[in-house]
């Protein structure tokens, strides 16, 4: 088990290096750079742009260097000093901007994941064990509905319903009067009243998918000979169900930690814009539009890192649950 974890961690290193290169390349792919945006904006507002100012700016932001030098400078500052560079647009260090938002993003993602698990697990088991029952059909109906509905649409509908019928303020994670105030009991309650909406919206399609996966996997296992063996031992139906087929069917469930995180983070962008959440999604979108490369690159890099860590976590969980993986 220890060797397995060490091996997995070693595999992560080349992955992370590749991700950082790709993140850097992608944010430089569009023609021009941040200065092109500045010049365009300045010209649009009628201000004269002289070439001396441009050269000074280019020098100041290090945009004159070849790409690989820029990359090396950027990545070595991150690794050695934890310095993610400067946001051109806001003219403040990236570090000052992103951590609150990353915290919100991952907080919401993890809560969403827990929400998905808490519902998909029992519902999936139920609909496999009671296959083709009325309950299974109802669950399946809502499952497909959840899969098929775009989540921004669901966000709009739920916002409308909660404003129109419950008179609740929506959008953001807390009501306007609590923004920038210190944490208090009231603020925590207000947070709970707000946070369910993004969690339900972001989690809906993932939950529907996971219910279907759990149902299909469990149906594969329910009629295996080892289930009959357990029954022939005298175990009760409920305990043998949880002890044998569900444990085997659990693997894809745990793998979801790995692939759900990126889905949640990217699914979150549109929803966050719609719900105006203080997460990285809207900030990344804005940074990409204005070619604020260090800010965009840092967000992409950290989100990817979290995904790699999520995959590691799910691999360790899988090995812990399934000896066939552990002893491979």
């Amino acid at each position: 088990m220890r060797d397995y974890i060490i091996r997995r961690i070693l595999y992560m290193i080349p992955t992370i290096i590749a991700i950082s290169v790709i993140a850097f390349t992608i944010i430089r792919l569009p023609p021009g750079d941040y200065l092109t945006t500045v010049i365009a904006e300045l010209s649009a507002s009628g201000a004269a742009v002289d070439s001396g100012t441009i050269a000074a700016l280019r020098d100041r932001y290090g945009l004159g260097d070849p790409s690989y030098i820029q990359y090396l400078k950027w990545i070595s500052r991150i690794v050695l000093h934890g310095d993610f560079g400067l946001s051109f647009e806001k003219n403040v260090p990236v570090n000052a901007l992103i951590w609150d938002r990353l915290g919100a993003t991952f907080g919401i993602s993890i809560l969403t994941l827990l929400f998905i698990w808490a519902f998909a697990f029992p519902i999936g088991i139920f609909s496999a064990v009671r296959k083709y029952s009325m309950g299974d059909y109802v669950v399946t109906f809502f499952g497909f509905l959840g899969l098929a509905t775009p989540n921004f649409l669901l966000a709009l509908v739920l916002m409308y319903v909660s404003v129109r019928y419950f008179g609740q303020s929506v959008g953001g994670l807390v009501s306007p009067e609590f923004i920038d105030t210190a944490w208090s009991w009231d603020k925590a309650i207000d947070l709970v009243a707000h946070i369910w909406l993004p969690i339900v919206v972001i989690g809906a399609s993932g939950m529907a998918a996971l219910i279907r996966i759990m149902r299909a996997n469990l149906l594969d296992e329910l009629y295996r000979p080892y289930v009959v063996t357990a029954r022939a031992k005298g175990m009760s139906e409920f305990s043998l169900l949880l002890r044998y087929p569900v444990r085997v069917a659990l693997n894809p469930f745990l793998s979801t930690v790995g692939w759900m995180l990126p889905t949640l983070v990217s699914g979150e962008i549109v929803v966050s814009v719609v719900l105006s959440l203080p997460t990285t999604g809207p900030m990344l979108l804005r940074a990409l539009l204005s070619q604020d490369m260090y800010l965009a690159g840092s967000i992409i890099l950290i989100a990817s890192l979290m995904t790699v860590l999520g995959t590691l976590l799910s691999d360790i969980l899988l090995a812990w649950v399934d000896p066939r993986i552990r002893y491979q």
Binding site: R224, P225, Y226, V228, T229, A230, R231, A232, K233, G234, M235, S236, R243, Y244, R247, V248, V321, D322, P323, R324
Partner: peptide, 25 residues
């Protein structure tokens, strides 16, 4: 019947490969 299964009447199956739970020792 559960008190009889496994205690008074036990059963061995044909496929030793698949008749034991795969991830339980």
């Amino acid at each position: 019947i559960r008190a009889i299964r496994g205690r008074e009447i036990a059963m061995i199956f044909q496929e030793p490969m698949t008749s034991l739970g795969p991830i339980t020792s």
